[in-house]
């Protein structure tokens, strides 16, 4: 499906020769296509770890991991919704959630490393869970990328790489392809 979308984008560019907002939209779609494909890969990684984990003795009851999964799924859903509805405000709200995920991941990995030291018999389970946590963190990151592309399309303003500028700029950026 990623290839189909990529091909469709090339066709659009060649045949319609869009400019300005449309061009930004199409190039954003190109990047989002790529991000979605990578999210798919991370989903597969999580599933692989789940399979391995299911075959072993379970570890301590989950508290943080389900929360992390829930927030990540919401971020993904919101970033795609923001794209579909060209909702820049919603996209910015996704960017803010990323810190929560980073904190949760650090906490979970820290606890799992401590668990491995305390109960070495659980090393393999813990490593699977670490893998899941890290893959969730990557999905959240990629959702943030999608949200950044949405902001770019709507405002012609590049948010990415500027973690401190998560609120709208005071003056409009005059991008090269504004109409």
């Amino acid at each position: 499906m990623e290839i189909e979308i990529g091909d469709a984008i090339v066709d659009l560019l060649a045949l319609q020769q869009p400019v300005a907002t449309d061009l930004r939209f199409i190039l954003a779609a190109l990047k989002i296509n790529n991000d979605l494909e990578r999210i798919g890969d991370h989903a597969v990684n999580i599933a692989e770890s789940a399979l391995k984990y299911a075959g072993m003795e379970p570890v301590k009851p989950f508290v943080d991991m389900p929360k992390m999964a829930q927030v990540t799924k919401a971020m993904l859903r919101d970033s795609i919704d923001a794209f579909i509805h060209a909702d820049s405000a919603k996209a910015r709200s996704v960017l803010i959630s990323d810190d929560t995920i980073d904190d949760l991941n650090r906490k979970i990995v820290g606890e799992l490393v401590a668990l491995m030291r305390a109960e070495p018999v659980l090393i393999e389970q813990a490593l699977d869970l670490i893998r899941v946590s890290r893959n969730l963190e990557r999905v959240a990151d990629l959702s943030t990328n999608i949200a950044e592309e949405v902001v770019f399309v709507a405002e012609a303003h590049v948010v990415k790489h500027h973690a401190e500028e998560k609120s709208p700029p005071q003056t409009r950026d005059a991008g090269p392809t504004t109409a």
Partner: peptide, 29 residues
């Protein structure tokens, strides 16, 4: 990161202004 932004912008400018097709479009993508 600055280079990333610069190159993205340059590609977009070329796409908007030169409106390449076929092989040139492929190069740009």
């Amino acid at each position: 990161d600055s280079f990333d932004t610069l190159i993205d912008r340059k590609c977009m400018d070329i796409l908007a202004l030169a409106q390449p097709v076929a092989v040139d479009l492929r190069l740009l993508m």
